[in-house]
Nucleic acid binder design. Structure first.
Lengths: 142, 142
DNA sequence: TCGTACTGTGATTATAATGGTTACAGTTGT
DNA sequence: ACAACTGTAACCATTATAATCACAGTACGA
């Protein structure tokens, strides 16, 4: 899982928590604890999938483009991190003679793909609203 | 998922494919396509969990310490990659005033932990033997 | 018992991935 | 026109990853 997912979920939860469901990249970045430019990049991904509406120019910023109880973590994962379960390094050698060396990468690909699918099924069960509720009900660590 | 998992699975499948279920780190490294030293490090993790027996000295090497149909990918994941689903970067600020900034990291930790658990349930259903069979039955890409 | 072929592990280096930062063009309300 | 925003690309710093090196320890066999 890459950290764009974390940034995306945090940003959406933050927006969902605001009365007008709006904020600038500066305000979000400050809450997420990263750079506004990074927020804008992630928001750009979310906008393409309709989870965010943007308003440029003065008084602009980002607004939630969906209901918090409708956006699932699976949606967010698909928008920001699809494929990230698979490590970039691959074993074996496609051109070799040995069947194992030659086919392992493809078999592992399938396994990662199946595993990601299972993971998505799980993420499907959690929404942005659920995350917000978890925050409200989690005891602050002493 | 980190690539130690890939190395571990590949190595075990390779061993399982050999008549005597033995090989040196050099032979495994050559098949996996990495450095023998890396293989030895991963084998070290697997040995601690009993999936591998090692024999030092001349004529030594690694031998499968389990039945291929008993070692699940979940076992291998636990031995090599536990926790790797969680990105190293965390959002928010634990010391802050804002509930969201303050608690998001902990909530995301829980989510990652639950998700990893689901992933393990899935990996539980596949064994080293299954991976070997997949390799034997997968058509080589043209 | 010495030499060779192994493993075990720490240290170092090279490379790739990640996150932070800057820069600047485009947009919009005042 | 200008100030306050977003959109994106480019670049730099840091971190993570994989490769490599180094060398001590072990075991077999001549």
């Amino acid at each position: 899982m890459n950290s764009e997912f974390t940034v995306a979920v945090h940003s959406l939860v933050y927006l969902a928590s605001r009365p007008d469901r709006m904020a600038t990249s500066d305000a979000i970045a400050c809450n997420v604890n990263t750079h506004p430019s990074r927020i804008r990049k992630v928001m750009s991904l979310l906008r393409k999938k309709g989870y965010i509406a943007t308003k440029e120019g003065i008084g602009g910023g980002y607004q939630l483009g969906c209901e918090p109880e409708e956006a699932t973590l699976a949606d967010i994962y698909r928008a920001t991190s699809i494929g990230s379960i698979k490590p970039s390094w691959c074993s074996g050698n496609e051109q070799g003679e040995c069947m194992i060396a030659c086919r392992m990468a493809a078999v592992m690909d399938d396994i990662f793909s199946d595993t990601e699918h299972k993971m998505l099924q799980h993420l499907e069960s959690m929404t942005i609203r659920d995350v917000l509720v978890r925050i409200w009900t989690t005891e602050k660590q002493p």
